[in-house]
Design a protein around this nucleic acid. Structure first.
Lengths: 160, 160
DNA sequence: TATTGTTATACTCTATAACTATA
DNA sequence: TATAGTTATAGAGTATAACAATA
């Protein structure tokens, strides 16, 4: 079949769509990253004043929230690999923010808990943290923020 | 005023809320990170077969989409610091994926463009990338996915 | 044998500062 | 002087594998 004889619309719309990538603004991994960078900006300012890294702050919050966790669980919840978390928790234990002790029933497991000093660190940053959240709520809209958080929780539960 | 004389409800509900942090599932930076890790899992599998890192893939897509960009712009869009991007682009230029040349009108600016080899790399991964997206759409729901992307774009535009 | 966590390694990115070249 | 980008450096996380201890 010559070019002249070929149909005017050789490719359907969906075929053409399949020959290109989505705009990066509609690519979920990139959109999530950009959104996160945006909301992290004031958080980073706050954290730079406390001396803990973003990862340590996240880890501490999770231990504070759930308590008595083994490291594999913390790694999953904090989105950190176990080797990374292992060193982070050793440093945090040295700093007196958490305790680590072997599980009585299964000595392979290490149970991690927050200390009073760890709780104090969280307490000292609650006001700043809430201020950031309230500004976000005011600028972005409470309803949209809740909707976004609902969708993200939902996505978390989806099986991909 | 003695303790006995103080009102029964010394703290209002909103005061008590201010004395605690949100659950990590309702903390936007953590929720965004967890969601991103979740959707990145199949993408990482795809990228490990191409040999380009996540950052290079993101950078290449942005250059492909927008074209003829200076590095500061790419850095902003790709959520990378300029020093990181500088080395990434040098490596990508060595690999023949992009070209870099000084702007004629302002020799400080470096304009970056994608090459045929770069375009071929994107083309080679379109099918796999779209398959991942379609699975996401099927499992999470097209409407919810669009809604989520709309909210993320919206958040991007908000002034925080 | 399988699982939990640690250690080792090479690579990469982050973050900041100092520097070069151009405007 | 200010801006765009590069280089340098220290620190930290990523990713994988090898290892130790326990089950």
């Amino acid at each position: 079949m010559s070019i002249a004889e070929s149909p005017a619309k050789e490719f359907s719309q969906s075929d053409r769509e399949k020959s290109a990538l989505r705009a990066t603004s509609r690519a979920l991994p990139i959109a999530l990253l950009r959104a996160r960078e945006k909301v992290m900006e004031p958080v980073r300012t706050m954290l730079s004043e406390t001396g803990v890294t973003e990862q340590k702050w996240r880890t501490l919050r999770i231990i504070h929230e759930m308590g008595g966790l083994e490291q594999s669980t913390i790694a999953r919840e904090a989105c950190l690999l176990l080797p990374s978390l292992s060193r982070i928790l050793q440093a945090m234990e040295s700093d007196g923010l958490v305790t680590r002790q072997a599980d009585r029933d299964d000595r392979r497991r290490i149970l991690v808990d927050i200390t009073d000093k760890g709780r104090a660190l969280i307490r000292d940053n609650i006001a700043a943290s809430n201020a950031i959240y309230e500004r976000l709520e005011a600028e972005f809209g409470q309803q949209k923020l809740d909707q976004l958080l609902d969708l993200l929780e939902d996505l978390q539960r989806a099986k991909l």
